[in-house]
């Protein structure tokens, strides 16, 4: 197993800050917007983004929630491993909001497809955008593209991209794992 660190340390923090500034450009004070992290691992990123936005705009009221997409997946019949469901925490009204979906890695796009379905169960947002920390280019199975990108990675299917967080894994970093 070969490990290649794609991003860590100060650059990791700068990337998160850049994403926040890009969000502010489009969403101003977030009065009409909401940040929704996709469970389980997008929730960490959503929290970071939310905290950073609150630091940058102390007066803004930034709505933030988490969305579990387990029951909306399309691979229950084909995936041998059933994913564990996590909690959905959306305690605000999604109707007519500009929702920013947040996930750590965008790969095939199927998670985002499921997230769109899961989100619509809460109402009809005015607009839905997608923010990802890592975009694995050229691997999409569905016509889904991110609006905000941390870093772009060219990888093959056998490789794995792992994002670890200080809160749970003791270190903020993005690693590319390759076999042999």
């Amino acid at each position: 197993m070969q490990k290649l660190t794609l991003l860590d340390g100060q650059k990791f923090q700068i990337t998160i800050q850049r994403l926040c500034h890009q969000l502010i450009e489009n969403h101003n004070d977030f009065s009409e917007s909401a940040i929704v992290g996709i469970q389980p691992r997008g929730a960490y990123l959503a929290k970071r983004i939310g905290d950073e936005l609150r630091r940058l705009q102390p007066k803004a009221n930034i709505l933030q929630g988490n969305l579990d997409i387990t029951f909306f997946r399309d691979d229950i019949r084909t995936n041998k491993d059933l994913p564990q469901a996590s909690a959905t925490e959306i305690d605000f009204i999604v109707e007519n909001k500009n929702v920013v979906l947040v996930d750590d890695v965008l790969w095939t796009g199927r998670t985002i497809r499921a997230a769109l379905d899961a989100l619509l169960a809460f109402g009809r947002p005015r607009k839905v955008e997608l923010l990802v920390l890592v975009d694995r280019r050229f691997s999409r199975q569905l016509p889904i593209e991110p609006d905000y990108i941390g870093i772009q990675v060219d990888s093959v299917d056998s490789q794995k991209v792992l994002v670890s967080w200080e809160e749970t894994d003791k270190k903020d970093q993005i690693i590319l794992l390759s076999e042999k």
Partner: peptide, 23 residues
């Protein structure tokens, strides 16, 4: 634990999920 999550689904305005769509 799975039922906890489904109970949450049942308290939403839209109480349906597509999990067993082809069963």
């Amino acid at each position: 634990e799975t039922a906890d999550n489904f109970k949450d689904v049942l308290n939403r305005p839209i109480k349906k999920v597509p999990s067993l769509r082809d069963i």
